[in-house]
């Protein structure tokens, strides 16, 4: 069986993957394109490994790792896409560009941070007021309970 077959298939796969990456605007489809590229790599590696009859099986070993890497990337990638989707209801790569519009973005970010800071201060004030209201006896436990609730909320998330 000629080496050429897997190589040509791999090259085609890679090309398709690159095409997907370049053309698709949906982040998930881009990810799929990347997966195609990685699988092309795997095919190449395995074919070359067999061709060289590599005693150390470098190609095969790297293939295993590439599979792992691909899995990790997909997992993380989907998580990030999910994160983006949750905050702005879309995963179009071109549309996610809040940070890209430089000058305005910088102003906006600063503005938002000032607002956040103000909110924080207000919260802290309210918290202090709230704590003052609650009975002094409860103080220690209250804080801890709040903390635990936070932890639970985190876990539940």
């Amino acid at each position: 069986m000629p080496l050429l077959f897997p190589l040509v298939v791999a090259a085609l796969l890679f090309a398709i993957g690159v095409y997907a990456v370049l053309v698709r605007r949906n982040a998930i489809l881009v990810l799929m394109g990347v997966e195609l590229m990685l699988n092309a790599v795997n095919l190449n590696l395995v074919a070359f490994d067999a061709w060289h009859a590599d005693a150390l099986h470098g190609g095969q070993i790297l293939t295993l790792f590439v599979i792992t890497i691909a899995a990790a990337e997909i997992g993380l990638g989907l998580a990030i896409v999910l994160l983006v989707f949750r905050t702005r209801r879309q995963v179009d790569v071109d549309a996610v560009r809040e940070l890209a519009d430089r000058d305005q973005a910088d102003e906006r970010i600063a503005e938002a941070e000032r607002a956040e800071a103000a909110e924080r201060d207000e919260l802290a004030e309210r918290a202090e007021a709230g704590l003052a209201q609650t009975a002094d006896a409860e103080r220690g436990e209250g804080a801890e309970a709040a903390e635990q609730r936070t932890a639970t909320a985190e876990a539940g998330r």
Binding site: L64, T68, A71, I74, G75, A79
Partner: peptide
């Protein structure tokens, strides 16, 4: 989202298998 976490756990262990079997 929980399904996603599940899926990811699955992927982790499925990939684990490719090291385990050889």
């Amino acid at each position: 989202v929980r399904y996603y976490v599940y899926a990811y756990l699955y992927v982790v262990f499925a990939v684990d298998a490719i090291f385990l079997f050889p």
